[in-house]
Computed example of a mutant assay.
Amino acid sequence: MQRKLNALAVAIGLLAAAASVSAQEMVVKIGHVGPVSGPQAHYGKDNENGARMAVEELNAKGVTIGGKKVKLELIAEDDAADPKQGTAAAQKLCDAKVNGVVGHLNSGTTIPASKIYNDCGIPQVTPSATNPKYSQQGFKTAFRLLANDNALGAGLALHAANNLKLKKVAIIDDRTAYGQGVAEVFKKTALQRGIQVVDEQYTTDKATDFMAILTSIKSKAPDGIFYGGMDPQAGPMLRQMDQLGLSNVKFFGGDGICTAKLSELSAGAKSLGNVICAEGGSSLEKMPGGKAWKAKYDAKYPGQFQVYSPYTYDAVHVLVQAMIDAGSADPKVYLPKLAAVNYTGVTAKVAFEADGELKNPAMTLYNYKDGKKVPLN
């Protein structure tokens, strides 16, 4: 009988100790939002993979904030690249009292969501939204991990003028905050450099038939076409350019078209060989930890890499580093440390300007050779 009582006492003691350890472990919630449904789901899934990989690695390593062991939890939401769904997802994360947010992917969802995060005091780090307006709203909670459209649109126009010596271009945009913004910067810089803009056309981020606008553009005989939008439209557009005999016209775009999937979406179009696109960061080969990180990513998520997952990975680390520096996961407490963070990530050395923009962001131009995206610089 005494032996049973002793065994029971030991069991109770073990349970109490486990409960005590559990009580000391703090759960920190990191929100992630991107389009994991709809035509842009390949971007959203790639982004979510990067964030999830960071959370899992940090949990395996063990994180302590303010003397307490922390378990990170990723709260992932889908905004389907739709602004209304994006603000609903943002409100949901606010209501869930997440400690920080990585996202959104698109400028059209990120900008309206940023007001909601600002109003509820939750820091937001976007890994991919590039419209300059995001950082011009004066929100102290808003941070960006890559170059904005002022760099991307201008860089492409300068390449067209200085290196390719183009004389005439046409411009198409999808009327989203991203597409319209990057197209406006390209146009402004092209005109400053003496390039004539011979036609401007508009489409949507849902369209797949571009024959009418491309036929109009063909009649103006441009040397190049700039498209402000995403790859689900750029792929069919390249195929239709082939059909209209525009295969030799240069095709420019920002990071929205600059994906591995563009080759698949263009289905072997000759026009793919004339694509020149820009990303607001270094190529994987030139990122501080790019090659090693990509090998880990491909082992975990084979065939899913697109563009931005290294940035979502870094965004999680930057948020957690700020919490560690502050000794608190309370957004009000760690926000000043996030603004002053100095972190060497996979993508770059991360430090922010006063408006939340990344200090000294890189920009890389790419083209496609034999269907594969390769850096030009």
Rank of each mutant, 00 (worst) to 15 (best):
H42T: 15
H42R: 15
H42G: 11
H42P: 10
H42Y: 15
Y43W: 14
Y43V: 08
Y43D: 11
Y43R: 07
Y43I: 09
G44P: 04
G44T: 01
K45M: 15
K45H: 12
D46I: 08
D46H: 09
D46C: 13
D46K: 07
D46P: 09
N47Q: 14
N47K: 07
E48K: 08
E48S: 10
E48I: 06
N49W: 09
N49L: 12
N49S: 14
N49F: 11
G50P: 06
G50R: 00
G50D: 05
G50M: 02
A51W: 00
R52I: 09
R52V: 10
R52G: 10
R52N: 14
R52Y: 11
M53I: 05
M53Q: 08
M53P: 04
M53E: 01
M53G: 02
M53A: 04
A54T: 10
A54S: 11
A54F: 09
V55G: 03
V55M: 05
V55T: 07
V55K: 03
E56W: 04
E56L: 08
E56P: 06
E57H: 04
E57G: 00
E57F: 02
E57A: 04
L58Y: 03
L58V: 07
N59K: 06
N59V: 04
N59D: 05
A60H: 13
A60M: 12
A60K: 15
A60W: 12
A60V: 12
K61G: 05
G62A: 13
G62Y: 07
G62P: 09
G62Q: 09
G62K: 10
V63S: 04
V63K: 08
T64Q: 11
T64P: 06
I65A: 04
I65H: 03
I65D: 05
I65L: 05
G66D: 15
G66E: 14
G66L: 13
G66C: 14
G66H: 12
G67L: 13
G67Q: 11
G67N: 12
G67V: 11
K68A: 15
K68N: 14
K68G: 13
K69D: 14
V70Q: 09
V70C: 10
V70F: 11
V70H: 08
K71H: 15
K71T: 15
L72V: 03
L72I: 04
L72F: 04
L72M: 06
L72G: 03
L72A: 03
E73H: 13
E73K: 15
E73T: 14
E73I: 12
L74H: 05
L74E: 03
L74T: 02
L74S: 02
I75L: 15
I75T: 12
I75R: 14
A76H: 10
A76N: 07
A76V: 12
A76I: 10
A76E: 05
E77V: 03
E77I: 01
E77Q: 07
D78N: 03
D78W: 00
D78C: 00
D78S: 01
D78T: 01
D78G: 01
D79V: 00
D79Y: 01
D79I: 00
D79H: 00
D79G: 00
D79M: 00
A80H: 02
A80S: 08
A80W: 01
A81H: 00
A81E: 01
A81V: 00
A81R: 00
